[in-house]
């Protein structure tokens, strides 16, 4: 089996990312492509998977809101 995809960081200030976090990021990269992109068949021969879109939208929302929460700073820390 091929090795898992990894995300590489090119930065002028290198930081070490753990393998676990790299894998998590690369899973997101995979999901983003496999679920959202690529050729589709919208015709009669295919049973499309109900719930893919829904699940993905749900997942996306979770990721976004965690990211937003992390960025949230209490007002008094602002100059």
């Amino acid at each position: 089996m091929a090795q898992p995809d990894l995300v590489h960081r090119a930065a002028s200030r290198p930081r070490v990312a753990s393998l676990a976090s790299q894998r998590r990021v690369s899973l997101c990269e995979t999901l983003d492509r496999v679920l959202n992109k690529g050729a589709v068949v919208a015709g009669d021969i295919v049973i499309s998977v109900a719930g893919v879109d829904l699940l993905y939208v749900g997942l996306n929302l979770v990721v976004t809101s965690v990211e937003t929460m992390r960025n949230w700073k209490p007002a008094e820390t602002r100059p």
Binding site: A10, G38, V40, A42
Partner: peptide
């Protein structure tokens, strides 16, 4: 910070709907 990944199959460069229409 620049994070790059790949190689991937060309998912973003496929514009193909094999539907009936």
């Amino acid at each position: 910070v620049f994070d790059y990944s790949g190689p991937w199959a060309p998912f973003h460069f496929v514009d193909l709907d094999l539907g009936l229409d």
